[in-house]
Design a protein around this nucleic acid. Structure first.
Lengths: 84, 84
DNA sequence: AAGTTATTTAGATATTTGTCTAAATACTTA
DNA sequence: TAAGTATTTAGACAAATATCTAAATAACTT
């Protein structure tokens, strides 16, 4: 839960999730959407992956990233308890 | 939105919300629940208030804090768009 | 095998964040 | 008005974070 909120607490990472919502993308394709170096994007992908919000699958020399929204259910549940 | 995710990205602040969910509390009563100095709690309350997650109303020398869950709807909406 | 491409890892740096103590503000009470 | 209580503001500091460049790893191509 801690990791999820941490992962969501960044504009770039939230944008990455919005991109991956539309379609799977490689690390490079994701990086092309930002004015940030590739190592920095790689770092963001790592944080998202640790939070289980995305998964990466290596295909040849590319890594294809996909969003994993099931983990968001935990967030929904926690937020709902606040709303009584 | 940015402010909300920032506010939620901290154990202490999430616990404060859980306390305020049960009942309104003064700043001092909130502080009594943590091993953290009062100024630090005051800082957390400020961050929660800036995110509109809580409101504070002064009554005499006390400030009574209440949770505001309506703002969470924005988070729900954003999270739901990710789930397609 | 050598060069190119895709991505990550390592190390450095500036900014942000959470915490503290001390001081300030505001209200209450004697 | 003076002393006490509740809370915040100010300033300092250590830890965490986002970013960068340079180097390493891995796979493809010729």
């Amino acid at each position: 839960m801690k990791d999820i909120f941490k992962a969501l607490n960044d504009d770039t990472r939230r944008e990455i999730l919005e991109l991956l919502k539309k379609q799977d993308l490689t690390a490079g394709e994701i990086a092309d959407n930002f004015n940030i170096s590739k190592p920095s994007i790689s770092h963001h992908l790592d944080i998202l992956q640790r939070a289980d919000l995305i998964t990466g699958e290596k295909k040849g020399q590319f890594i294809h990233y996909s969003i994993n929204t099931t983990i968001l259910d935990d967030v929904f549940t926690w937020l709902l308890t606040l709303k009584k």
